[in-house]
Simulated assay, not measured.
Amino acid sequence: MDIAKKRCFVFDLDGTVYMGDKPIAGTVDFIRRNLQRFDIHFLTNNTSKNLNDYVTKLRGMGIDMDLPRMLSPLIPLADRLESEGIAEIYPVGNANFLAYLRERLPNLRFGTSEACSLVVVGYDTELTYQKLAESCLLLQRPDVRFWATHPDDVCPSPRGPLPDTGSFLALYEKAVKRRPELIFGKPSTLIVEPLLARYRPEEMVMVGDRLYTDKVMAENAGMDFILVLSGESTREDLPGLDRQPTLVLDDLGQLQ
């Protein structure tokens, strides 16, 4: 990979730039040194947090950051809801998830009435049995569609992996025999469409720690992919892959 030909870097966050509240030093240092050299953006599939909290967190690590640098499944989700004119949904998400949708789409209703035409499942850190039951009942109606923000099975944490949206989706598949028709986060390229409209794929690099989301999205978009071993994946995961990452590094401190 010729880094001199790159114009845009896209960084995953959890497990790539930091683990919990602990910065991954080599990668954070690379970002600080290259903010003026490259157009750097940050991408998270985690829909449980306020996007402004990511800005604050990265600024606290010495990264000169603003909200337009953030990419999240919430953004194309809200765009799609608006473009289709959907009036009522049943969201499976926490308070931050609901607040984002209310701010973007003040006329969108949340409920389980006959007018509800869609169940949207996100990373719900406030998940209850009632939410699972209501959403499963809705998904037994053939007129109700099924979307999800992202397919990650687990969310990394300093104490170990935690169940994420992909784990919830496995429950729905068992309970109502349905999979989401549309997923907005990695490995879908919907989440990076604004950047693909500005740069050629060969000018872009995706940096992440997950093979089944970060790597696959990069391949789907035609970007180079740098796997960092600071999060979920290990070198033992690499043999047998159909396609190897462009680079495999402990962190981006090894990239000059």
Rank of each mutant, 00 (worst) to 15 (best):
M61D: 02
L101V: 00
V120R: 12
A87R: 14
I86D: 12
Y100C: 09
V55E: 10
V92T: 06
L51K: 10
T128M: 13
T128Y: 09
L43Q: 04
I31N: 08
D53A: 15
L81M: 07
K57V: 05
Y90I: 01
L71H: 13
E126V: 03
L118C: 08
A99L: 06
A78T: 01
K49W: 14
F97A: 14
L35M: 15
L43H: 08
S113A: 13
Y100L: 05
Y123H: 07
N45F: 13
S113W: 06
P91K: 06
K131E: 11
M61N: 00
Q130T: 11
T56V: 02
Y129S: 03
L43F: 15
L77I: 06
V55G: 05
R69E: 13
Y54G: 08
C116K: 02
E82I: 01
N52I: 14
Y54C: 07
S83F: 00
Y90A: 08
I40S: 05
G122Q: 09
V55A: 06
N34E: 01
Y100R: 08
I40V: 10
I89E: 04
S117Q: 11
E84N: 07
S48C: 07
F97V: 08
H41T: 06
F30L: 14
A99Y: 02
G111N: 01
N50K: 14
L67P: 01
S48E: 10
T47D: 07
P68V: 12
L101R: 07
N45Q: 10
P73N: 13
Y54M: 06
G122W: 04
I86S: 09
L67S: 12
Y90E: 01
V121N: 11
F110A: 01
L108S: 01
D66L: 03
T47C: 04
G60P: 05
M70E: 06
L105C: 02
L118I: 05
V55F: 09
M70F: 02
R104H: 15
D64S: 09
A115F: 12
N45R: 10
E114A: 15
S83H: 04
I63T: 07
I63P: 04
I86P: 05
S117M: 12
L77N: 10
D124H: 00
M61R: 10
F97W: 05
N94F: 04
S48F: 05
R69Q: 12
R33N: 03
E88F: 02
E84W: 06
F30G: 11
L51D: 14
V55H: 02
R32V: 02
L67A: 11
P91D: 02
I86L: 11
V120P: 03
C116P: 00
T44I: 09
A115T: 15
I40K: 04
I89S: 02
N45C: 05
S117Y: 03
F110D: 12
S113L: 07
T44Q: 13
R69L: 11
